[in-house]
């Protein structure tokens, strides 16, 4: 489907809808920023507290360096002003790096992990859902769906170590942990798989439901009646309709994928953004936490929007309200 087709489909109501979402996005982000900013500042325990009591004069000097001695409103506005210039400020904990640098260094790894996991989840889920729908109400269907529900029911942090124990300690097929970038993709397989499995389960169920809806539709019956081979019926006529529920799920899935990666990054020691967030929160690294929340928030908003647009493009029936 070409870009022009997308544009054509997005006219009228749909176009308006997308514009509204685009206008909403900054509002959502600002809300998120404000919420997390004030949450952080009202918390007990400061970022510069050490086992050894720091001298008040020195502590004051450090606080001044990060503007913490100024009133909250001043801090907030200066943060927002810097943000508009694209500057997220210096990290409180990693004294030699700015938040921009930390995000630039870690985000690509998280995205890489997320993309591979999404692809895996989509592939496994769609294949299983398709197969299960074709073999509706057989033992194959039940078996696949039971697997899917088990996948949904097992937390990522149980799947991860189980994969480690089996695939890298027992069989030694994949490296146990660590990260070598795109140069050695073998490192990313297990983390991506443990991140993907719960989503594959959910996608499989959605795919199956969507396919069942479409397979019973009139136009499919017509196609069958015309004597078209079953494979052609399925691949040419039904997949596009059957995949719709999956597409609308992809947006929210990204948000869950991101939270899931906090755990996977820890288990497999991947230098991603998720771990920076958790540790930043624990260390009261205000700026770093703000930075990660902003990046993740923007990503989630973006993917929700993309998923909405895609849904509209794929489904001719959809009318946006």
């Amino acid at each position: 489907m070409g870009f022009r087709t997308i544009l054509r489909k997005l006219q009228g109501d749909q176009f308006r809808y997308v514009v509204i979402r685009l206008i909403q996005a900054p509002v959502v982000l600002l809300l998120l920023i404000t919420l997390s900013f004030f949450l952080m500042r009202f918390a007990p325990g400061g970022p510069f507290m050490l086992e050894q009591r720091t001298d008040p004069v020195i502590e004051q000097a450090i606080r001044a360096k990060y503007l913490l001695d100024k009133p909250l409103s001043y801090q907030y506005w200066s943060f927002v002003k810097d943000l508009l210039r694209g500057d997220l400020g210096p990290s409180f904990k990693h004294k030699n790096r700015t938040v921009n640098e930390i995000i630039a260094a870690t985000l690509p790894h998280s995205i890489y992990l997320g993309v591979i996991a999404t692809l895996l989840a989509a592939f496994l889920g769609i294949a299983a859902g398709l197969f299960s729908a074709i073999r509706h109400d057989t033992s194959v269907d039940y078996g696949l769906m039971a697997c899917a529900v088990i996948g949904i029911s097992l937390p990522t942090f149980v799947i991860g170590p189980l994969l480690q124990l089996s695939f890298s300690i027992y069989w030694q097929w994949f490296p146990l942990a660590g990260y070598e970038g795109m140069a050695k993709p073998s490192y990313i397989i297990l983390p991506a798989l443990s991140l993907a499995l719960p989503f594959a389960g959910r996608i499989a169920r959605l795919m199956r439901a969507g396919m069942l809806d479409v397979l019973n539709a009139d136009f499919v019956r017509t196609a069958r009646a015309k004597g078209l081979p079953e494979t052609i019926v399925i691949f040419r006529h039904t997949i596009r309709g059957g995949i719709l529920p999956v597409v609308s799920y992809l947006g929210p899935a990204i948000a869950q994928l991101v939270t899931g990666s906090l755990v996977v990054e820890k288990i497999f020691q991947i230098p991603g953004l998720g771990r920076e967030f958790v540790e930043g929160a624990l260390n009261r690294d205000y700026t770093l936490v703000m930075g990660t929340v902003i990046v993740y928030g923007a990503l989630i908003i973006l993917f929700n929007l993309l998923s909405d647009i895609m849904y509209g493009v794929l489904d001719p029936r959809v009318k946006y309200v």
Partner: peptide, 23 residues
């Protein structure tokens, strides 16, 4: 409903984590 739409886009787990860590 547009408020719900806006809230949908907020990664709440992050706020929950911040909330729990801090308070």
């Amino acid at each position: 409903m547009s408020i719900v739409d806006i809230l949908y886009a907020i990664p709440f787990m992050f706020l929950v984590i911040i909330l729990l860590v801090l308070f």
